[in-house]
Design a protein around this nucleic acid. Sequence first.
DNA 1: CCAACGTCTGAGCAGTCGTTCAGGCATCTG
DNA 2: CAGATGCCTGAACGACTGCTCAGACGTTGG
Lengths: 114, 114
Amino acid sequence: MACVDFVRVERARQALPDDATVRTLADTLKALGDPTRLQIVIALATEGVGELCVCDLAALVGVSESAVSHSLRTLRHLRLVRYRKTGKIAYYALDDVHVGRLVTEGLQHVEEAP
Amino acid sequence: MACVDFVRVERARQALPDDATVRTLADTLKALGDPTRLQIVIALATEGVGELCVCDLAALVGVSESAVSHSLRTLRHLRLVRYRKTGKIAYYALDDVHVGRLVTEGLQHVEEAP
DNA sequence: CCAACGTCTGAGCAGTCGTTCAGGCATCTG
DNA sequence: CAGATGCCTGAACGACTGCTCAGACGTTGG
């Protein structure tokens, strides 16, 4: 306990966002930390794809439409995706550009050679 | 099931990374999806901070040193942080630049006005 | 109007996660 | 050497998560 560098700790503490922001960001990243939801987001981030309906996403990711719907609800509540409904079909798309960039940055990290 | 747009689905499927990459990226994002680990990474990403030891991080985040150590192990195994040991003190830092940029991009998304 | 369709939802279960607790290993100090 | 310090680790417990299942809702086509 005695080895704490108070100067640096204080500097880091002031740079930390408030708790609410940290928690929201954590929730967002946690949502993207599930393979099903991550594939959904990557698919929607693909250039030339644009919108996909629940059926499309279920077929693409390879899970039930119910599971996709649950996943989409999570992504919706975090404002990672938005949807447009025409008749009985719901078309989903990414909500804002940061999401796509975030995933891209993540992929660059993962694909770096060890 | 009949509403699937095979053209778009196929286009999206070919853009999807292989399963191993998706899983690794998901694991990485899930790791950042925990408030404790996220605060550690944000702290280490703060300009002018550089390195912090386990004590510092425990004091900063407000959890036990054991919990920090467990969290750091997870981050280490995913190559999100690296450490340097001098004597009995272990100094942790971010492993590569993408991690900091990823968190920054995430913060920009969260701090956007609704 | 009725049946089929696309989607959404709540409950429940198996699996996972983060923390605490107790203890172990090096390293430094007196 | 003996104790203290900084850090790491495995086990275990409560909390949470993502899926399946069954059913409900609104829309569309015959």
